[in-house]
């Protein structure tokens, strides 16, 4: 999945996968911190991932 999405043009580093049990609160915090830090270094996404307004030609 990761390979595939990155093949279609999503920057490496924007997509993260992790397995966290509901008992692993500290791991959750660590992972989220790490992800936000990494994604911030990539600058805001200039690609359109979310549909905003209907496009009219």
């Amino acid at each position: 999945m990761k390979n595939f999405l990155e093949h279609t043009g999503i920057e490496p580093g924007r997509l993260h996968f992790s397995w966290i049990s509901s008992a692993e609160s500290t791991k959750f915090v660590d992972v989220v911190k790490k992800i936000t830090d990494e994604v911030k270094t990539l600058n805001p996404a200039n690609k359109k991932y979310v549909k905003t307004e209907p496009k009219v030609d």
Partner: peptide, 19 residues
């Protein structure tokens, strides 16, 4: 997924179909 011609919808369809 939206049914429009919006590039986001079109891409969602194609990525998921392939997956």
């Amino acid at each position: 997924v939206g049914k429009s011609q919006d590039p986001t919808d079109v891409k969602t369809f194609h990525l998921l179909r392939a997956y």
